[in-house]
Amino acid sequence: MGNASSKLILVAIALVAAIVTASARLSSLVSLDVDLARSGEVWRLFSSHLAHITWSQYVTDASLFVILYEKYAKSYGLAATLTLITVSTLSVSLAVIFFGSYQVYAGLSGINCAAFSAIVMTLMIARPYWFAPWLIATAFSIYLFSADKSLVSGINVASEAHLVGALTGGFFALIIRPSKRHANNDSGSNSLNLY
């Protein structure tokens, strides 16, 4: 499957997120309510990222999700992209449960942070003496730690979700190499190249 398939899957995920966001009942069913997840509703660990609290949060998160993961898929292929989405989904949800201060979590922003840091890390590894990725990484770190981001798109931001998402993406970039075909923007193999 090529880049077109990747884009199609990513857009499909964003559309599913739109449907969930439009329905209060679906949002309630899939969102990460910490108490309900702890009581055994395990699917919330994976599904919560499809729900959004406000439409402006959805617009930002879904568009950045498609852009970032499409970029990531170009270098790493579809299999690696879906693996990163799955792993970061789980790590972000666990961070919210164990370190979070909010009762309910929803949104794609945590897993977006994973893709962002994975792409930046890939650039840093590929061209270590190029200042631009380092500058972007620094700005991203400041963004993650800054206090004035606490209200974005009309909702409180769960910083721990972003931090753990970013760390997941960073570690992912270190253990998985982009396949040469995908690095050259060719369609073809979707294999993961582990160190």
């Binding site: 402006s56 949060q57 930002t60 950045l64 970032l68 922003s109 631009a132 972007i136 981001k149 974005v152």
Partner: peptide, 16 residues
Amino acid sequence: GGGSFGFISIILVGAL
């Protein structure tokens, strides 16, 4: 509706 669009993150993704 309402709320900001998270411009900082959009700028960062643009830079990336």
